[in-house]
Amino acid sequence: MKQLIIKPEVCYGCRTCELVCSFGHYEQFNPKMANCKVYEYDEAAVAIPVVCLQCEDPACMKICPVKAISRDENGAVVINGDKCIGCKMCANACPLGNVSYHPTLRKVFKCDLCGGDPKCAQFCPSGAIQFVETDADSDRRAFIGERFKELIGEEK
């Protein structure tokens, strides 16, 4: 099973993910309709892409009063627009803020992994968003290890 992973350490804040996400879902370019968002902090010199990580135990799915949210065959937690009554409970329940309500579209929306081939990862030029096998993440683990080494090591 593949999952989306984010690597803020290489994100340079171009927001192509937002553009291509809104286009993939609505055929229009509108970052406010995107299921992902990049937060940039100038002073700290970092940019952080935030995407739904498709929780194992999704609060949005549990709280939905009409069972409009389910997990599809790609592992994505998806909203069935036909069943959704627009109560926005899911948006309130998500601890990561990854379900949003769009006032113009008048509906809630979240990442659906584009049906198994997420465009944000396809188009991300820096590799800050990747769609990879869940066990292919050992280099990232090694990276975290490196960071800890820098933090608490005594090499210097």
Binding site: Y12, G13, C14, R15, T16, L19, P125, S126
Partner: peptide, 10 residues
């Protein structure tokens, strides 16, 4: 690196 909007070069 920093990138402008929608830029693949950065």
């Amino acid at each position: 690196n920093k990138g402008c909007y929608g830029c693949s070069i950065g």
